[in-house]
């Protein structure tokens, strides 16, 4: 097998793989929202409520100060 052929196969399968992952991701986005596991649209609020004292959309558990504040 020549280098060009290998390049061709590598390209083809990797592209298929990435396409599958991308479609899987689309499916995941819409399905998890339908099932009620996850609400993606709430993340849009991050740009709007961005004052330091605004309540985070999802608090980072690593942050210790946060527990005191809430």
């Amino acid at each position: 097998m020549t280098l060009t052929e290998m390049q061709g196969y590598a390209f083809f399968f990797l592209t298929v793989l990435l396409v599958v992952i991308l479609y899987g991701y689309i499916l995941h986005l819409y399905r998890s929202e339908k099932k009620g596991e996850q609400d993606y649209e709430k993340y849009g609020k991050m740009a709007l409520d961005d004052e330091l004292h605004d309540r985070p959309v999802e608090a980072n558990p690593k942050d210790k100060n946060d527990k005191k504040e809430n």
Binding site: Y25, I26, L29, Y40, E41, Y43, G44
Partner: peptide
């Protein structure tokens, strides 16, 4: 634009999911 347009207009991004998809695409 994903930050400044929503912030200036007070409107959240129309579809956050679409923004994620477009990103990976």
């Amino acid at each position: 634009i994903y930050y400044f347009l929503p912030k200036e207009s007070g409107q959240a991004v129309y579809s956050y999911k679409l923004s994620l998809l477009s990103f990976w695409g």
